[in-house]
Amino acid sequence: MLELRLVQGGLLKKVLDSLKDLVNDANFDCSATGFSLQAMDSSHVALVALLLRSEGFEHYRCDRNLSLGMNLSNMAKMLKCAGNDDIVTIKADDAADSVTFMFESPNQDKIADFDMKLMDIDSEHLGIPEAEFQAIVRMPSAEFARICKDLSTIGDTVVISVTKEGVKFSTRGDIGTANIVCRHNTSVDKPEEATIIEMEETVSLTFALRYMNSFTKATPLANQVTISLSSDLPVVVEYKVAEMGHIRFYLAPKIEE
């Protein structure tokens, strides 16, 4: 038996909106730790890892580890029917072939339940080793989204370079080139407006903008995004999900051969 009650149901809507264009079908894994997902995009270039810790739910019952295979586009359709302020409860029996989403309005005057068919999905997990990063950039998530969107109108790839000067996002295309530099800046009114650059070594990596733009669908989840870079390793683009977890996108770099 699985029963997860999330008071901030709107968070789950935002999580699905950030995943559904990247991944078609995925297994949601439920354990005592929390509600999690690991999935690759269809071309196996990017990987997404979601964790919503059990403590973040108002009620979390998971009698035994359970894997729920869902079509994310269909799940997003169901969750769109919930109000942004609704309380969302996810329910499933141990051997169930469906999952129930229950939506309660904040003042309890409307209660809805939606039943969605589950799928059998063959998926293997990848072990993600702990890595020491050469550079970690924390910046406003809306700014990062704006940069990715702007650069993708000019080129297909972005070179992200971190030096003492700051973090530089560069692209080139048929019409010309573009460079955007963001400097370390903590002299801001609100902490979420800060750009914090921690650099052990200079690093410069190239990535497909199409994927970066897809990751920025998670922007409504968090005011800040963390971009972790190391030579020849996938970049990690992380958004916090309130105080209860995170969504991490990993993208393999394009390597000169």
Partner: peptide, 14 residues
Amino acid sequence: ENVQYNIEKYFERF
């Protein structure tokens, strides 16, 4: 020309 490897090149399956 840059080469795009799959993510599996970096992370092991288990």
